Simulated assay, not measured.
Amino acid sequence: MTTRFGYTLMTEQSGPKDLVRHAVAAEQVGFDFEVSSDHYFPWLSAQGHAPYAWSVLGAVAHATERVDLMTYVTCPTIRYHPAVVAQKAATLGLLSDNRFTLGLGAGENLNEHVVGQGWPSVDARQDMLVEAVEIIRALHTGELTTWEGDYFRVDSARIWDLPDEPVDIGIAVGGEKAVHRFGPLADHLVATEPDAGLVETWNATEGAPRIGSPGRAVGQIPIAWGRDAEEATQRAHEQFRWFAGGWAVNADLPTTAGFAGATQYVRPEDVAETIPCGPDLDAVVEAVKPFWEAGFTDVALVQVGGDTVDEFLAEAAGPLLEKLRAAAP
């Protein structure tokens, strides 16, 4: 299977109109798909944005024609009831002419605490996600649905506007336990680390769709392209040093101030070790390479810094895509 390359609509670093404009430009330059984060807060105040992802994706669905679209990822358990997510996903499936994949995950405290429902343990969050997926699948049949579990209840609900093809569901997983639990419930694997073990475990899990046919493994990697490597490194440090915290930290911190405090000792050179910074496109290819070597079929790039996206898409994205496609299987 040919490796596909996508562009990330980073809602934390651009406003809604800019995101739609970036989506159109990314399609025109040749990206295969586009994913959108779904946040109530930016990770750090320096990023400066957090528009409503579903409104942005609705506009993007109408403004684009070819690229596949995906949430990367939505938490369907606290800030949103799964019945509402099912309706939103069905509508996006229609607006995009079946180009939309619903990417789901167990969420981060940063975004979910805002509705005042607390922040459950990771085991409870995964239990909630299982119920949410079951509800979404049931509602996407178009049947009148009443459903009751340990965490959610659905009372005589039906989705009236459904696409001809059911919306695919990707689920974010971070370890063997999560793969065994969510693989049989998902159409696609979602992960941010190029971990070959995840793909191998997924493919060995009974009921999980095999990666490559028909399932996909969708990864994501930040880059800080720019003509000046030092400036790009400083930008990556200012806006993306939260990335160094890892999932165990990122899932539980509730505010941008928390992320600033947790990363106060992360240095620019530390960030540059994990994020390719500067004009060297070959360095970006080398950073992306571990994903396809691990068996990932799709990789979405994040250009760090909202005010650099236009320049990146106009100057670097086309040549970078050529290099990536020449190097990838």
Rank of each mutant, 00 (worst) to 15 (best):
T308N: 10
Q234R: 09
A224L: 06
Y52V: 11
A63H: 02
R267T: 06
G116H: 11
G170F: 07
F240K: 01
D270K: 09
A53R: 11
T101C: 12
L321N: 04
A260E: 15
V285D: 09
E134Y: 01
W43A: 12
V167G: 01
L102C: 03
T192W: 00
F31K: 02
H22R: 09
V288L: 02
R216S: 09
Y151N: 03
E293I: 03
V20P: 01
T263D: 03
Y40K: 05
D123G: 07
A157I: 11
T145R: 08
G261Y: 10
V266S: 06
R125V: 09
G305H: 07
A90D: 11
Y72I: 09
I223M: 05
R125H: 07
F33H: 14
D18C: 02
H113Q: 15
V122A: 14
G174M: 12
I159P: 07
P222H: 11
E108W: 03
E231N: 01
A53L: 08
S156C: 14
A244M: 14
A59V: 02
V167R: 07
A316H: 10
M1C: 03
T308F: 07
K289P: 03
Y72H: 06
D164E: 15
L324A: 02
S156D: 15
L139A: 03
G295T: 02
F31E: 00
A25F: 02
K177F: 12
A25T: 05
P194D: 07
E134F: 00
L92N: 03
G278L: 00
S36I: 15
P184L: 13
F296D: 06
D38T: 12
G15K: 11
S96W: 00
L320S: 01
G93S: 13
Q220L: 15
A178W: 08
E27H: 06
